[in-house]
Simulated scan of single mutants.
Amino acid sequence: MTTGRGTEDRAAERTARRVGGIEVRPVAGHIGAEITGVDLAEGLDDDAVAVVRQAVLRWKVVFFRGQRLDHAGHVALARRFGEPVVLGRRGSVSPPDFPEVETTADRLELGGRFGMEHDEWLQRRRHTLLRGWHCDHGARVDPPAATVLRAETVPPYGGDTTWSNLAAAYAGLSAPVRAFVDGLRAEHRLGVGYQPRPGDDSYLRHLLDHQVASVHPLVRVHPETGERVLFVNGYYVEQIVGVSRPESAALLEMLLEQAVRPEYTVRFRWEPGSVAFWDNRATIHLAPSDNAHLDFPRVMHRVMLTGDVPVGVDGTPSQPLVGTRPGHW
């Protein structure tokens, strides 16, 4: 009987699951589900919140299409799942009356603010194939628990976002490698790998003046599911602690390639009104780089939920190095 019930559960996960009019339909083998039957602008009752929360924990990122959220509705939705982050610094495009909402178009200002065209700024930050993969604010000692991203304006083609399931990536390692990485820790730092400009580089000075760094377990234990998560990304990880730099570079290359293997990923085609809600503790994602030359606008709005301090397999929590304290943004 126990074996049969397990088989039924696995079969149900492979197909759409409908609960109270809400349908959760997986879209890839390890990550991603589309949720229909809800109007996020009307608000979610407790039963709907429970369904969505469970779907996020199981599938790591969930997608809603055709939603009519404004900034107030976006913040209200996020509050049903946690406490929204209030960022201390945002760009001029973000709505002044909603400090929880960050508009991704703000990033277009950053290069110009430091004397660079946006393309050059991106090239100096993203000069390796894996450099763009990241979790949100991973250099903090308490990275956000989740992110809710809403599309306002998207290009007619291009501009997709890709996510990877770090719990599946960890499980996919061989047993000896899992046992090895369980005990390692890594330094995560803002501005890792940035290539300075010759001469005066005001962006480098900005990075140094606003430095954020923490030591995180290389494998964190998810606080809700208990899963072990391969806590690596190309954007923030500086070095594995306690090994030489050449050893660290080789290990990180192997682990990053494992983390973003295609079978652990899902890619989402945005439409106006689309919403993605992901577990920032168990995923990394890759923002698009195929649309800049198309000259189409892409305006997205982000609300993040406050997170906890990661804990490793041995129960040791992350440690802040500089520029970050739990709960202080």
Results as ranks from 00 to 15, higher is better:
Gly4Asn: 13
Ala12Leu: 14
Arg14Trp: 02
Ala28His: 13
Ala41Gly: 00
Leu44Pro: 01
Arg53Thr: 10
Gln54Asp: 15
Trp59Pro: 02
Leu77Ser: 03
Arg79His: 05
Glu83Met: 13
Ser92Cys: 07
Ser92Asp: 12
Phe98Cys: 06
Phe98Ser: 13
Leu110Phe: 13
Arg113Tyr: 04
Gly115Ala: 05
Met116Ile: 07
Leu122Trp: 06
Arg126Ala: 07
Leu129Pro: 00
Leu130Pro: 00
Ala139Ile: 06
Arg140Leu: 10
Val148Gly: 01
Arg150Lys: 10
Ala151Asn: 00
Val154Ala: 08
Tyr157Gln: 12
Gly158Ser: 05
Gly172Val: 01
Leu173Ile: 03
Pro176Ser: 01
Arg178Leu: 09
Phe180Pro: 00
Phe180Thr: 12
Phe180Tyr: 13
Ala186Trp: 08
Asp201Ser: 03
Arg205Ala: 15
His222Ile: 10
Glu227Ser: 04
Glu227His: 09
Val237Gly: 03
Leu256Asn: 08
Ala259Gln: 09
Glu263Asn: 02
Gly273Asp: 00
Ser274Arg: 09
Trp278Lys: 04
Ala282Gly: 08
Ser289Val: 13
Ala292Glu: 15
Leu294Ala: 15
Val299Gly: 01
Asp308Ala: 15
Asp314Lys: 09
Val322Tyr: 06
Thr324Leu: 08
Pro326Ala: 09
Trp329Asp: 13
Trp329Leu: 12
Trp329Asn: 13
